[in-house]
Every structure is written in C-alpha cells, then in structure tokens.
C-alpha cells in the first residue's frame, strides 16, 4: 500500500482523537512517567534487604538496624522512561485478509508509536519476518512521530516467518544487537502467529527477555474460512510449498478445527507464560484495537 494512502489525513485525525481518548483515560496527565521495577536512585521506597559489602552506607536503615540489630538497606524504585518496542510481523502470511492483516498491524504500530511518543516514552519499531528486517531505533518526543509514520509507510508483507529468530537478533530496547542485556520495557508483538516453527519459541523468547510483552494476534477470515471446493493445489504464501488437496466438507471441518486449535494454543501458551494476548480480527478499526492493546499493556488504567 502506498504511503500517502496508508497514513492519510483521516488516519492522522483518528490518531489525534485516540490521544484524546488516552488522555481522558489516564486522567489527563501524560507526564506521569512509567515506574520501572528497577531499584535504583529513586525516592519511592521499594523494599529492604540485608546490607552487603559495597552498598552505599547512605541507604542503611538505621532505625531497622536499631530494632533488629542487623543492617538493612533501603531499596528505592528508580524512576526511568520505559521503551515501548513494537514488533510487526511482515511475513507474507500477513498479506491475507480483507483488509490485509498487515494493514491493521501497521496502523496499530503507527498508533501505538504515536501514543508512545506523546507520552514521552521511547518508541522502537521493528519489522520482522524470517529475520529482523528493519528496525527503527528508539525515539523519544512527539517530534519523532513523523519518522515513525514514515518508517511504517512502505512496509509490505513478504518472506517467511521465524519470529523467534528475528526477536533473537533484537537488542535491548528494540534496537539491533541481540544478546545484550535486555532493557526493561514493553514489547508489543503484532503478528498472525502463523509460524512454521510454532509460536512456542517466540513466546519463550519474549518471556526470557524479561520484557513485558503483549501478543497482538491478528486473525483474518481467510485464515479460518475455506472459500473454495474441489480439487485444488494449495500454495503456501511464504514458503511456496504446494499440496494437492480435494476440499471436501470433511477437509473444511478439519481446517476449521485446526484453526481453532491454533487460536486456543496461542492463548494458552501466552497465559501460561504470563504474557498478555489479544486476538483481534483483521477487519476491526485500528482505534479499537489500539485501546484494547493499551489497556492490556497497562498503559491505560
């Protein structure tokens, strides 16, 4: 899809309206920075722990030492701006659907990025397929919104899907350089989860990355429906692999069952790993999808 039509004036107006909605939902203060779970130099008490050599003696809690006769240090939550990492699946399977799943995915990414920049968070956007295709490094400030939109303008669906491998190449905070220390933040994966390797590797990857993660599972009707009958030669949109098949009612039923099993599997796996999962139809308005994502990700109350 061409850029001018993908993020046109109407889309931008919808983004502005979305910002208003988000502000209202958060009480009108977008400056309330997110608290990281990182214990650091903040002023908000977080916890106590026993003193260890090397700790700053200034953090000793003398009152507690007097009562317990054991040294403890005060732990305070460190205030920091979090990185919102938006990962968009751009594999060929994302072209399916009416409108294509990729279209909604890009709109979601653009909207989340816009909202994030408005909230003074850092926003990183990654395009993944069989590998990490493109990365927009973390940006901050509302002035960076055009760069986000520009980055997403010419995104097309192509190639295979290997989300786990692609995420492995992502650095902390969404930039390149996989394997580095993960920076705390929120990762939103927008994908149809149609990965030949299954969704388990990528979910495990997100979990082990110590990232808060929200899985936005886009579902298109074409994924579930069987719009043809008889003898066909099916070609996989990503791999090009073909299979001869005679579509019969039994085949249709089996296909529908497999699709339902896929949806259930993704949801169950996410739930089992403490990951938020949203299954969104590809034809819903992106505003609704974004609000649901923000609520699920804790951005909205």
């Amino acid at each position: 899809m061409d850029g001018p039509t993908r993020f046109d004036e109407a889309f931008l107006r919808k983004l502005e309206a979305l910002i208003v909605i988000v502000k209202r939902a958060r009480g009108g203060d977008l400056r309330a920075e997110r608290r990281s779970r990182r214990v650091g130099a903040g002023i908000e008490f977080a916890d106590h722990r026993e003193y260890a050599a090397g700790d700053d003696v200034r953090s000793l809690d003398w009152s507690l030492f007097a009562r317990l006769d054991r040294p403890f240090v005060r732990l305070r939550e460190e205030d920091e701006d979090v990185t919102l990492s938006i990962v968009v699946d751009t594999s060929a399977s994302m072209a399916a659907g009416t409108p294509p799943k990729l279209e909604l995915a890009v709109q979601i990414a653009a909207a989340l990025g816009y909202v994030g920049l408005t909230s003074l968070d850092r926003i990183a956007v990654s395009l993944v397929g069989a590998e990490l295709r493109e990365v927009l490094p973390p940006l901050r400030g509302r002035a960076a919104a055009p760069r986000v939109l520009s980055f997403l303008t010419n995104v097309t669906a192509a190639g295979r899907t290997d989300l786990a491998a692609a995420l492995a190449k992502m650095g902390p905070g969404g930039g390149r350089g996989g394997g580095g220390a993960a920076r705390r933040g929120l990762t939103i994966l927008v994908s149809d989860m149609l990965d030949p390797a299954g969704c388990l590797p990528v979910l495990n990857r997100l979990r082990t990355a110590r990232q808060e993660a929200v899985i936005v599972h886009l579902v298109a009707d074409e994924d579930a429906a069987v719009p043809f009958e008889g003898d066909v030669l099916l070609e996989d949109a990503e791999t090009g692999q073909t299979r001869a098949l005679t579509v019969t009612p039994a085949v249709r039923r089996a296909h529908a069952e497999r699709h339902r099993a896929l949806l259930r599997g993704v949801a169950d796996l996410c739930r089992g790993r403490g990951l938020a999962c949203l299954q969104i139809a590809a034809d819903v308005p992106f505003e609704d999808a974004v609000l649901r994502i923000l609520r699920t990700g804790g951005v909205l109350g």
Binding site: A92, S93, A95, A96, D192, L194, P196, A220, E222, D223, F228, G230, D231, V232, L233, L234, E235, D236, A237, E238, T239, Q241, T242, R243, A244, L245, V251, H255, R258, H259, L262
Partner: peptide, 18 residues
Amino acid sequence: LGRRRRRIVVPFLPLWVP
C-alpha cells in the same frame, strides 16, 4: 486440463494439510 489443479495461495499451508 482439469488434472492441473487450481492453484490457490493460502497464508499458512499447515492449517490446510497436516
């Protein structure tokens, strides 16, 4: 001609043919 099956591109083949 009919033996040349109609080619249909699907997003994810394993969903169709195990």
